[in-house]
Amino acid sequence: MSTASTPLALRAATPADVSAIRELIEGLAEYEQLRHECIATDALLHEALFGARPHAEVVLAEWNGEVAGFALFFHNFSTFLARPGIYLEDLFVRPSFRGHGIGRALLTHLAQLAVSRSCGRLEWSVLDWNVDAIGFYEKLGARAQDAWTVYRVTGDALTHLASGDA
């Protein structure tokens, strides 16, 4: 997505972009006050995104050729719709590039991918305190799924559950 009238370009990430993706993830972790939980390395990201079995995809946003933001997503599946969906794991625009429509362009791009891939939905989660993001998403037509609560098992709890002793 690039036109003569805008310095914005969107493109699929390549293995050469791994360090830039990690830096964007670290920026997001700082913004979300979760930097202490961010242990992503270039090696882990390379394997997860470009290894033998890629688990996610990344779209990079460039502003005048400089990496300005990203969307990291993967396919999920709706049994009720019997169709795949796209789950947006992370969307982040560097603070110095905000206000140029980059976040909207990334979401529009993902919606176009979802439609072209015959997906039944595009969804994501947002932190309750991030009122700016919530307002932005609602202006785009997104609606909160308040009837659902996200559960997560990680670390020792995951290992314990996997052992069958839980």
Rank of each mutant, 00 (worst) to 15 (best):
L10E: 07
L10C: 06
L10D: 05
R11D: 05
R11S: 06
A13W: 00
A13D: 01
A13N: 04
T14G: 04
P15D: 05
P15F: 03
P15G: 06
P15E: 06
P15N: 06
A16M: 01
A16N: 02
D17R: 01
D17C: 02
D17Q: 01
V18P: 00
V18Y: 03
S19H: 05
S19R: 09
S19I: 08
S19P: 02
A20F: 06
A20H: 12
I21K: 01
R22Q: 06
R22V: 12
R22L: 07
R22F: 00
R22N: 09
R22W: 01
E23M: 11
E23F: 04
E23S: 15
L24P: 04
L24A: 06
L24D: 02
L24I: 06
I25N: 03
I25G: 07
I25F: 06
I25E: 07
I25T: 09
E26Y: 07
E26L: 12
G27L: 11
G27I: 13
G27P: 06
G27S: 08
G27A: 13
L28R: 01
L28D: 02
L28P: 03
A29W: 11
A29H: 07
A29S: 14
E30K: 09
Y31T: 04
Y31P: 05
E32C: 07
Q33E: 11
Q33G: 00
Q33L: 13
Q33I: 03
Q33N: 04
L34K: 09
L34S: 10
R35G: 00
R35T: 06
R35W: 04
H36A: 09
E37Y: 11
E37I: 02
E37D: 10
E37L: 15
C38Q: 09
C38F: 01
C38L: 02
C38T: 08
I39R: 12
I39D: 15
I39N: 13
I39Y: 08
A40R: 02
T41E: 00
D42E: 12
D42H: 01
D42F: 03
D42G: 06
A43I: 08
A43T: 09
L44N: 05
L45Q: 03
L45N: 05
L45A: 04
H46N: 11
H46S: 07
A48E: 08
A48S: 13
L49H: 03
F50V: 03
F50T: 03
F50M: 05
G51T: 03
A52P: 00
A52R: 04
A52S: 05
A52L: 12
P54V: 08
P54K: 01
P54M: 05
H55A: 13
A56K: 01
A56M: 08
A56V: 09
E57N: 12
E57K: 11
V58I: 13
V58D: 02
V58M: 07
V58K: 02
V59N: 06
L60T: 04
L60V: 08
L60D: 09
A61I: 14
E62R: 11
E62S: 15
W63P: 10
W63H: 15
G65Y: 10
G65S: 15
G65Q: 13
G65V: 12
G65H: 14
G65M: 12
E66H: 10
E66L: 11
E66N: 12
V67Q: 12
V67W: 10
V67A: 14
V67K: 13
A68N: 15
A68G: 14
A68R: 13
G69R: 14
G69Q: 08
G69V: 13
F70E: 10
F70Q: 15
A71I: 13
L72T: 08
